[in-house]
Simulated assay, not measured.
Amino acid sequence: MKSRKLIGVYAGLLIIAVATMIMLWRLKTMQKAEILPRDYPEIKQEGILRMVTEYNQSGYYVAGDTIEGFQYELSQAIAKLSGLEVQTHLEMSLAESFQELEKNKCDIIARNIPITSDIKEEYLFTEPIVLNKQVLVQRTEEANKGIKPLRNQLDLAGKTLYIPKDSPARLRLQNLGHEIGDTIYVVEDELYSGEQLAIMVAKGDIDYAVCDQQIATLSQKQLPEIDIKTDISFTQLQSWAVRKDSPILLDSLNSWLDQIRKNGTFNKIYKKYYQ
């Protein structure tokens, strides 16, 4: 009797083990299916191009009853050329955007990403979309009780500068600290974008922020209290990013961007936001 009971127990355990193995195998299969390469043929077949950008005037924002933003309008121009529907997802963190790209949750990161040698090893980048650089956002002399804005990078020693989380300015400020031989205190704000930090500078909540020149230029139109004339970095080429396994999509994007430049659409959109 005991032997029969033991055999029954072992059989039950064997069934559970086999069932568990089957479930794990199915789970792995599903995970593999989720990260299958998604290049232009798959995108064209579905008819949807997924992009992630940030919520600001450079990316995507709502103004009254209309949607605007440099990246958004550029993507809509591409939609007209390609015949694809562009679905837009918003994510302020650049690091999170790259994770979404890797997980096939989006096809393009549509934001002004500085092209560096390190990042080029991990992703593919379109032909440069804009030339950009990092600038210091501070108050004007008139808005800062007669205190003149900083013009020499050496004067940043001991100062506290705010940047958005994952901002490309972080590495530049670290290098700048080494260059001037002193400490520059950098605070990465997890909640606020470059635009919002510029507002905080204008209000006097913080003294200094660093953001893209394009963002700073857009902010200055509404915030005459800020000064953006002090450069932090050299001019950089900035582009959109796609996965390494999407070379056909990259070629298509470059072709569409070239057509948009040639027919004048790009300049029209660029001037609307940056000039």
Rank of each mutant, 00 (worst) to 15 (best):
I7A: 15
I7R: 11
V9C: 14
A11T: 14
A11F: 07
G12R: 07
G12I: 01
I16L: 15
V18M: 10
A19D: 04
A19V: 02
M23Q: 00
R26Y: 11
K32T: 04
P37W: 03
Y40D: 01
E42K: 05
E42M: 06
I43V: 13
I48W: 05
R50T: 08
M51E: 11
V52Y: 02
V52M: 10
S58M: 10
G59W: 09
V62W: 12
V62Q: 15
I67D: 09
Y72E: 07
K80I: 11
G83I: 11
E85M: 06
E85A: 06
E91G: 04
L94V: 05
F98P: 01
L101D: 02
I109N: 07
A110N: 06
I113T: 07
P114R: 03
D118H: 09
V130P: 00
V130R: 04
Q138L: 02
T140D: 13
K148W: 00
G158L: 06
L161D: 03
Y162V: 00
D166M: 07
P168Q: 12
L171P: 08
R172T: 14
L176R: 05
V186N: 04
L191Q: 11
V201G: 00
A202T: 10
K203I: 10
C211E: 11
Q213D: 12
I215E: 14
Q220R: 13
Q220T: 03
D227R: 00
I228Y: 00
T230Q: 15
T230G: 03
T235D: 10
S246D: 01
I248Y: 01
L249G: 02
L250A: 09
L250E: 06
S252G: 03
D258H: 08
K262H: 06
G264D: 07
T265F: 01
K268D: 11
K272T: 13
K272G: 02
Y273G: 02
